[in-house]
Simulated scan of single mutants.
Amino acid sequence: MSMQFASTSSDKKGVLVSVGVPTFNRPDGLRRTLNQILAQTHENLEVIVSDNASEDIEVERVANEFAVKDKRVQYIRQPRNIGAMANFKYVLQHAGGEYFMWAADDDEWSPAFVETCLAASISGESVGCKFDTLFRASGRRDSNPMPELDPSFGVLSNLRGFLACMQPSLIYGLHRKSSLEFLHHLPPFDFIDCYLVIRQIVSSGFRTVQDVLYVAGVDAPVYEIKYADEHTKKFDYATFFLRTALLFPFAKGMTLKEKRSAIGLLWETMCGLIKHHESCADPRKILISQIRQRWFRVLAPWRFA
């Protein structure tokens, strides 16, 4: 584990960490995930496996195998497919630990991942580690840039750092479970993972550890973009922008001037994001158009009542 936090790790051996494993049709991946999670140096774990009605019967066999030999593993099979986000919420809802993390069935972890993150959560802030991306089809392993986040830097500084280097995989860090309760009432939308990280930065704080202790796995030959609306396969930028912007006026760790700066940084980031994905000359038009459409949908029932 990182020597920076080694002195505090012994104080947290008794802390229960819940690990939520949403899984679907990946028996080999599930086996790899459970092997690596159960091999963590921090042993006080509960592991909640939620099988999203997999058609592959091997998923249930693998999960039951681990549940029998290790009492820390709980296996639940959903009677029907409830969707990916609902499955992520399910494992969170049924977690009983003080801290919580999601563990995907296509990712990998160093044995010291949980212990390091737990030790680094000095004041209860969320913690994420630097990570690589492994493309299993080709065996290629890429390093990823990581924002340097630390609660001592201040909220605006951390927002600036994350918005300059948005890493959605930071949601796969370690969080105090109570700080994630808002997620139960949150509908799915594009870039929701980035919203979660920003919300943690603003509310409970976020720290990054610059040791590579996590690998994001990609089983497909190339990374496939995930859309909230799989039918249109188009990004809704406005929902993420509006929800995120509404976090800043209520942030306790920023002055009024800093809150205005945060909204300006978010606007610039959104324009860059749209320009990247849409290859357009003026991304502002797309964002403004989507914002207008969204407000029209919200206000329309009152206009025509």
Rank of each mutant, 00 (worst) to 15 (best):
169 S>R: 01
5 F>P: 01
193 D>Y: 14
256 L>Q: 09
195 Y>D: 04
93 Q>L: 14
3 M>S: 13
225 I>F: 14
150 D>E: 15
252 K>W: 02
230 E>Q: 13
163 L>G: 00
212 V>G: 00
105 D>L: 08
207 R>H: 15
262 A>D: 05
208 T>P: 08
296 F>A: 00
299 L>K: 04
9 S>V: 10
303 R>A: 14
193 D>R: 05
118 L>A: 05
181 E>P: 00
5 F>R: 09
96 G>P: 02
191 F>R: 09
206 F>R: 05
20 G>Q: 03
92 L>M: 09
276 H>K: 11
51 D>R: 08
192 I>G: 02
79 P>D: 13
11 D>V: 04
159 L>H: 00
89 K>T: 02
247 L>M: 12
46 E>P: 07
90 Y>S: 03
103 A>D: 07
254 M>T: 06
35 N>Y: 09
214 Y>E: 05
241 F>C: 07
150 D>M: 14
289 S>A: 15
90 Y>A: 01
46 E>V: 01
142 D>R: 06
127 V>A: 08
121 S>Y: 00
101 M>A: 12
26 R>V: 03
28 D>W: 07
74 Q>D: 06
75 Y>C: 09
182 F>N: 01
258 E>L: 10
176 R>G: 03
164 A>H: 06
62 V>N: 05
272 G>Q: 08
277 H>C: 04
88 F>Y: 08
76 I>F: 15
45 L>M: 06
118 L>Q: 05
137 A>N: 11
173 G>E: 07
295 W>E: 14
99 Y>G: 01
203 S>G: 07
116 T>E: 06
187 P>N: 13
61 R>D: 10
95 A>Y: 01
43 E>P: 05
10 S>D: 13
271 C>E: 15
258 E>K: 07
133 T>Q: 00
160 R>E: 14
156 L>P: 04
247 L>Y: 10
186 L>N: 03
153 F>A: 13
167 Q>K: 13
13 K>E: 15
199 R>A: 11
43 E>Q: 12
24 F>S: 02
11 D>G: 02
178 S>L: 07
287 L>W: 13
118 L>W: 05
267 W>E: 13
218 V>L: 07
300 A>Y: 11
80 R>M: 14
111 P>A: 07
162 F>Y: 15
106 D>H: 10
202 V>Y: 02
133 T>W: 00
263 I>S: 12
271 C>D: 09
128 G>H: 05
178 S>H: 03
119 A>C: 09
129 C>L: 00
195 Y>C: 03
258 E>S: 10
203 S>Q: 11
18 S>C: 02
223 Y>E: 12
257 K>G: 06
289 S>Q: 15
244 T>F: 03
34 L>P: 14
38 L>D: 06
